[in-house]
Design a protein around this nucleic acid. Structure first.
Length: 768
DNA sequence: CATCGATAACTTTTT
DNA sequence: GTTATCGATG
């Protein structure tokens, strides 16, 4: 997923070892790394700082246990957080051992392993082994239905809110009956426990569970069935946990139960890189490790093989402001390199221009776009960069972003398949009875739902009954008849046909593909491509079940990682990656640290923001460039903003403010530049200055008169190269259809139907 | 029952 | 600035 070529991924570059008589895989590890590999028995905590060769230690350790015959591949439980990490580990262990690692059946993410276990013992928690795993979307719709059924105002108490509460409880291992008195009152005037229970009951009826249930059900099974737990105690002789700082309470309890068997549990992590507190991760888990597992060996990896001295110095200085941490001191033998740069800009557009200019200069001096990443706090910040890059024709890719399996068209297609596979799947039924529009409206669906629920049968079944009565009339009735008959037919075909072929037929015959083909919106083409991609990726699985399991546990499809492109992503998505040049824009109070972290959560959440900053800086190998602006458009409104406190916390000896324009020199107190009068601040606050800068900086963009003036001038020069000329209709992947206003060589000014007037490079559009 | 327009609510971060 | 939702109209 989203990967950068291997050469760019975290990789230790230890000194070449001169040891002889050692197994090859141990050579080249430094003393601490080797200790971490060889401490196989008992509880071990490896505190692996950024860039200290964590993945290498983990994979070598696994290889070591196998190579020394301490355990068979199926006796090792290795858990990671992301599928990417799991995949990488499989690959690297395979490379060391030199054979296929299909034999590591218990290497995977927490969720995929929990799902595996749950499928084997589903009956113990009242599910059938074929249970479906709901995604957030299904979950929300289910909760909404429950709220409506209970007569709760779903505006005042949003499904989203309840979903996040339930999620939080599950993360902490709390089942409905154990919900505390005070938690009850967190939602709908004391009804929280009732709603939580109803939700769980409804899941059971649907033979489904949500993400949090995967682990929570495991916990229930283990605590209530000693024999089952004993089975896994016997099975797992070694436990290996990656990114331990990201575990939540439920995952921690799960691990503790399993570790009670062999006692050989090795957790690798970095408390300074704990950035998932908002979804239940407990830094405490790693901070408490030594008390939780008495007699634990703790090994610190502090030698960094990734970044220059200044980058490490800046990052270390920053993270020192955090109070709750175990404390590590990263060091390197590399050059100090160049200081971390800090740049102040006027607004977001200026920042994007600055970054793009720096990128072009960097590439001109012989570097690759692939060597560069821009890391932002939140995805809305990406827009300014994308706009600029599109205009310049600068190649870039967004890592993370909207995910394939969560796209509406993909989920619709899945719903069709789910319904064909199982008539019981009410959520799937509801989702697509009327997609594409068949004339079966809200009222009909509600009628079916109500009747089905009171009769205790599935909606499909109830619909089948109702078309034979006068319950539903007219257009809706015939449409429903046709729909049910179609589903029946597909279901009959399912036995004799490959599942990907069938999927194609379903999408065709249901009119779903046609719906998008007739859609003229800019995204329609992309959606059709996604459907094609979906069919293609289904082909890679033996059964429909295997495919559906995959999509519910894997967040994304592998992105083709070819092409020389700048990477644009959030700080969260950047964890584990590294780049020679890293841009860290948007370092302003309320943006980073985010408003939310300032409003709620107190010190803990501010410290998490700081860790995020730390993660950002430590992604850089050679250069890190931090920037902030004086004005930022937030919610479509211009606000003047202050430089982030994190900038003040950078040690002056490792960071420097660079300024060319002269209107900004240094942030308040930054870099030891003491400016008692603080001219910068006062200048910024002066309205006159603002008006002046606003006029000067952004006149061209914000004043339509200027643009038109320029446009007219060039227009008279008429057509440009590339076969595009004024008046041509064009299509752009992001902006949709539009008409060319100005063609100036490869630079086009296009009035897009939806997106408005944009400047783009001709290679980004095609004739419509 | 569907379509269009207005309005309100909103943005972290994701297995 | 956008996207989801709601209400009035065809």
């Amino acid at each position: 997923m989203n990967s950068v070529p291997l050469s760019q991924q975290a990789s230790a570059r230890p000194p070449s070892g001169g040891e002889t008589g050692l197994p090859g895989y141990l050579k080249g590890l430094n003393a601490e790394q080797r200790a971490a590999v060889e401490a196989t028995d008992g509880p071990v905590l490896v505190l692996a700082g950024a860039g200290t060769g964590k993945t290498r230690v983990l994979t070598t350790r696994l290889a070591h246990i196998l190579a020394t015959g301490r355990a068979n591949p199926w006796e090792i439980l290795s858990v990671t957080f992301t599928n990417k990490a799991a995949r990488e580990m499989k690959e690297r262990v395979g490379a060391i051992i030199g054979e296929a690692v299909e034999g590591l059946p218990w290497l995977g993410t927490f969720h995929s392993i929990a799902a595996q276990i749950l499928r084997r013992h589903a009956e113990l928690v009242g599910l059938k082994p074929s249970f479906t795993i709901l995604d957030t979307d299904d979950q929300l719709r289910l909760i909404k239905q429950i709220l409506q059924a209970e007569g709760i105002d779903d505006k005042r108490w949003t499904p989203r809110h309840l979903a996040s509460l339930i999620d939080g409880w599950k993360n902490r291992g709390i089942r409905p009956e154990k919900l505390g008195e005070e938690d009850r009152w967190t939602f709908a005037d004391g009804k929280a426990d009732v709603l939580y229970r109803l939700y769980q009951e409804r899941l059971k009826v649907l033979n489904a569970c949500d993400f949090g249930d995967l682990l929570l059900h495991n916990l229930t099974i283990f605590t209530e069935n000693a024999d089952v737990l004993a089975l896994y105690h016997r099975r797992f002789r070694y436990l290996l946990v990656d990114e331990y700082q990201d575990t939540n309470v439920c995952q921690y309890l799960w691990l503790r139960l399993l570790a009670r068997g062999s006692g050989n549990v090795c957790c690798v992590g970095d408390d300074d890189q704990s950035i998932y507190g908002w979804r239940g991760a407990e830094v405490d888990n790693i901070l408490r490790f030594e008390t939780d597992f008495p007699g634990a060996t703790v090994i610190r990896l502090e030698r960094n093989y990734r970044s220059t001295g200044h980058i490490l110095g800046a990052a270390s200085g920053l993270i020192r402001s955090n109070r709750s941490r175990l404390g590590k001191t990263l060091w390197t033998e590399d050059d100090p390199g160049e200081k971390v740069q800090v740049r102040g800009l006027w607004d977001g557009d200026a920042e994007a221009r600055f970054v793009a200019d720096e990128i072009e200069a960097f590439v001109r001096s012989g570097n690759q776009h692939n060597d560069i990443a821009i890391l932002v706090r939140a995805s809305w910040q990406m827009r300014a960069f994308e706009d600029r890059f599109i205009m310049l024709g600068l190649p870039y890719k967004v890592i993370g972003g909207p995910r394939f399996f969560e796209r509406a068209e993909v989920r619709d297609a899945h719903a069709y398949m789910r319904l064909v596979r199982s008539a019981e799947d009410d959520l799937a039924f509801e989702r697509i009875v009327n997609v594409p529009k068949r004339g079966i409206g809200e009222t009909s669906v509600q009628k079916i739902a109500a009747a089905a629920r009171s009769a205790g049968v599935s909606m499909s079944e109830m619909a089948g009954l109702m078309v034979q009565t006068d319950e539903i009339r007219g257009k809706a009735r015939t449409a429903l008849q046709v729909f049910l008959r179609d589903v029946e037919r597909w279901r009959a075909q399912a036995d004799t046909m490959r599942h990907d072929e069938l999927a194609e037929i379903i999408l065709d015959e249901s009119g779903y593909t046609a719906m998008w083909r007739e859609d003229k919106s800019p995204q329609a083409a992309g959606r059709l491509d996604n459907l094609k991609e979906l069919i293609r990726s289904m082909g890679g699985f033996d059964t429909l079940e295997a495919y559906l399991e995959h999509v519910s546990l894997v967040a994304d499809l592998d992105q083709a990682s070819d092409g020389d492109e700048v990477s644009l992503m959030t700080l969260h998505a950047a964890k584990g990656l590294e780049f020679p040049l890293v841009f860290l824009p948007g370092w302003e109070e309320t943006v980073f640290p985010s408003q939310r972290s300032l409003d709620e959560g107190g010190t803990a959440s501010l410290e998490e923001e700081r860790r995020l900053a730390y993660v950002g800086i430590t992604r850089a190998r050679e250069r890190a460039i931090i920037s902030f602006t004086a004005n930022r458009m937030i919610f479509g409104r211009w606000q003047s903003v202050l430089p982030s406190r994190f900038i003040d916390e950078l040690p002056p000896e490792h960071a420097e403010a660079k300024s060319e324009t002269g209107y900004y020199d240094a942030g308040p107190g930054f870099a030891g530049v003491s400016e008692p009068a603080d001219p910068f601040r006062s200048a910024y606050d002066s309205p006159g200055w603002k008006r002046f800068k606003a006029a000067q900086e952004s006149g061209a963009r914000r004043d339509p008169g200027v643009i038109e003036g320029k446009a007219k001038l060039i227009e008279s020069g008429d057509n440009g190269a590339g076969g595009f000329k004024r008046g041509d209709r064009v299509f752009h992947l992001k902006f949709g259809y539009g008409r060319i206003l100005v063609a100036d060589g490869a630079k086009l000014t296009v009035a897009f139907d939806k997106a408005g007037e944009k400047k783009v490079v001709s290679s980004f559009v095609e004739k419509a």
